[in-house]
Design a protein around this nucleic acid. Structure first.
Lengths: 196, 196
DNA sequence: GACGAAATAGAACGGTCGTACTATTTTCTC
DNA sequence: GAGAAAATAGTACGACCGTTCTATTTCGTC
């Protein structure tokens, strides 16, 4: 790894952390430069524009997410164990960066914008939704979940459990958020399971 | 209503709309002045500071929320009908402003900050959570919901249904978001109901 | 160790930010 | 309708924004 690539990776690591706290709106080149010990123009030289930086932060976020959540789950047995691993990993993910889930942090300030950054985020989110539904359908195939389970509905409610957890733990700092989320998840699993 | 109060109300109405789209981070005095046809200093004179403006926007948001969601629900019969009205009203609320739910828009850029604006938002959110739990416990008392229902857990999952709806409809523009949310809600109602 | 290339710094740009201060206009009261 | 009070405009401030351009330093190769 060359010097430049090294620096860039360090910038992205810092940027990811910052984006989780302040979103993309609060992530300025000046403050990021200061935080990484570079000059503003020195940092800027690694990216053609702020938008390019955002796109690369997004890619780096997904890379981290796959490493921390998706990959470990894929090492688990197909079906229910993998679904559980996805949930556990996802919860951990939301606490990994100091500002919580970076995707949610940037989602809110991209909601009503348009452009490549939003497009990329949405594409990634769709992929994730698809993956949740696929994990559920594997659990159906393995006989863990009901034959007639609506796997897309399952994915939707799954994400609802996560979103409620994130909202209650992060904004409201509710100490019961995790136990509530786990209870909700168990309920979801139970009513999705075969031989209910 | 004096002229000044009139202008202030108009400013707040515009600010509310803008805050729903861009959050508090994206809501600048300059752009807000332009949008309301006032000079920047003319607008500023109505508020001692930007923070004061934010606090007042927050109060105005709650006022609107109570008017559009809480009050109509309170006119419904106690118990399940009221719970349903809260849900329906909440879904409508999320589509009322062009940027979606203003509370969620500003929640994400206050997550990790501290100060009076965040404190006020959190207080309001706790009130709302409490109200949901109370509505559920009334439904228990009326015999609509199970005696042993955990009403706080109900409130938590209720908000999860809303959050998933908001996320899927707003960020991902999923046309099925509403039907998914309604299905999730019906599931929640069903397993909370008496004589299941 | 020289030398071309890669990486970083520095300075400056027009713009917008929130805020303060001083005019000017509009409204209300008698 | 005069005059006080309220409401709005104008201007300026220092700070930071993203971006561009031109140095300067550091690195990798022969």
């Amino acid at each position: 790894m060359t010097k430049g690539e090294d620096t860039k990776a360090a910038i992205l690591r810092t940027a990811l952390e910052r984006a989780s706290r302040d979103g993309f709106l609060g992530l300025s080149l000046g403050s990021l430069a200061q935080e990484t010990g570079l000059s503003k123009s020195g940092l800027f030289a690694h990216f053609g524009s702020k938008e390019d930086l955002q796109l690369q932060v997004l890619d780096a976020s997904v890379e981290a997410f796959v490493e921390h959540v998706v990959a470990p789950a894929l090492r688990k047995p197909r079906g229910l164990p993998r679904v559980r691993a996805l949930f556990d990993g996802w919860l951990e993910w939301s606490q990994e960066l100091s500002g919580g889930c970076v995707f949610l942090a940037i989602a809110s300030d991209l909601d009503d914008k348009s452009g490549p950054v939003r497009d990329k985020l949405v594409a990634y989110q769709r992929d994730w939704s698809d993956n949740l539904a696929i994990a559920a359908s594997i659990a159906v195939a393995e006989g863990h979940f009901r034959e007639d389970l609506d796997t897309r509905q399952f994915a939707h409610e799954f994400s609802g459990v996560y979103l409620a957890y994130h909202h209650h733990s992060r904004l409201m700092r509710d100490p019961e958020a995790e136990s509530r989320a786990r209870a909700a998840f168990e309920g979801l699993i139970q009513r999705s399971s075969a031989r209910s």
